[in-house]
C-alpha cells in the first residue's frame, strides 16, 4: 500500500491578520512527485514553505493545524528546525549557488552536519551528489571553479546536488525551471524522474505541462483553498472541479 510521507491536517497560515491558507488537508505520498499548481498568490508556495518551516523566518507569519512527516508533528517544540531542514531540502526558482567553488557548494552541507569523517569520504560524497544531479560529467575538470560560473541550468542542478548531498528524505522545489531554457528544463525534469526513486518530491510549478509530465499527484490551490487533489492524469484530462478546469484550460469562467 502507498505510504504517505507528509500529512497536512487543517493547515492555515496567516501573515499578520491576513489568512493566506485556509485549512489545507493534504497527503503527500512517499517517493513520488506531487505538483502544487494554482494562480499567483493562491498559497501554493506558502504551503510548500510550511513543510520545512521556512515560514518561521518570516515576521508576522503564523500557522495553525499540523504537518506530520512520518507521523511526527514537525512543529513540536522539541524539534530543531535546522535538523528538519536537513531532512527536507529545498530548491528555489532562481538558482542560488553560494559564492564559492562548485566543490564547496556541495561540500558545505555535509561539512556542517558532520556527515563525513575524512576528506576522501567528503570528495566521494561530493562526486556522488554531482553525479546524482546529472552534473558531474559536465564539470569534472573545473570542480574548483566558482559555482556562479556555470550556466543557469547547471547552477540549478548544482543547487539540487547541494540539496541531496545531505541525504534528505524530501525535496521541495519552488518553480525550479521558471528561469531556465527548454533544454535545461528537460534536464531538470529528467533528474526529477530519477530522484523520485529515492526522495519524496513536492514541486510548485506554473507550467501545467511540466506538472503533467513530472508528477503522479497534483493539487490545485485557489485563493488559499485546496480545490482539488488527485492523480495527475485525471486532473489534467478530466478534473472534477470547475475551478480546476477553468484554470488549467485558461478560461475566464
Amino acid at each position: 500500500m502507498q505510504k504517505n510521507k507528509i500529512e497536512a491536517k487543517k493547515v492555515s497560515v496567516f501573515y499578520n491578520d491576513k489568512k493566506a491558507l485556509n485549512e489545507i488537508t493534504l497527503s503527500i505520498p512517499e517517493k513520488k512527485v506531487t505538483s502544487l499548481i494554482g494562480p499567483s498568490g493562491c498559497g501554493k508556495s506558502t504551503f510548500l514553505r510550511c513543510i520545512n518551516r521556512m515560514n518561521d523566518t518570516i515576521e508576522g507569519c503564523s500557522m495553525t493545524g499540523r504537518i506530520l512527516i512520518d507521523n511526527k508533528d514537525i512543529n513540536e517544540k522539541s524539534l530543531d528546525p535546522v535538523l528538519l531542514r536537513a531532512r527536507v531540502g529545498m530548491v528555489f526558482q532562481k538558482p542560488n549557488p553560494f559564492p564559492k567553488s562548485i566543490f564547496e557548494n556541495v561540500a558545505y552541507g555535509p561539512k556542517i552536519h558532520g556527515l563525513t569523517q575524512s576528506s576522501d569520504e567528503l570528495n566521494e560524497l561530493v562526486e556522488e551528489s554531482l553525479k546524482k544531479a546529472g552534473l558531474f560529467s559536465e564539470i569534472k575538470d573545473r570542480i574548483h571553479e566558482p559555482g556562479t560560473s556555470l550556466s543557469g541550468g547547471q547552477q540549478q542542478r548544482l543547487c539540487i546536488a547541494r540539496a541531496i548531498s545531505i541525504s534528505p528524505e524530501i525535496i521541495l522545489m519552488d518553480e525550479p525551471c521558471s528561469a531556465l531554457d527548454p533544454i535545461a528544463t528537460a534536464k531538470i525534469e529528467e533528474l526529477i524522474d530519477e530522484l523520485a526513486h529515492n526522495f519524496t518530491i513536492v514541486i510548485v510549478t506554473h507550467s501545467m505541462q511540466q506538472a503533467a509530465r513530472v508528477s503522479k499527484q497534483t493539487a490545485f490551490f485557489h485563493m488559499g483553498n485546496l480545490i482539488e487533489v488527485g492523480k495527475t492524469d485525471s486532473i489534467f484530462s478530466n478534473p472534477s472541479e470547475k475551478k480546476t478546469q477553468d484554470y488549467i484550460t485558461g478560461k475566464i469562467g
Binding site: 501545467m208 505541462q209 503533467a212 489534467f236 484530462s237 478530466n238 478534473p239 478546469q245 488549467i248 484550460t249
Partner: peptide, 9 residues
C-alpha cells in the same frame, strides 16, 4: 496551445 482537459478532448 497545448490544450488540456475539455479543450484537449
Amino acid at each position: 496551445r497545448q490544450p488540456l482537459a475539455d479543450d484537449l478532448r
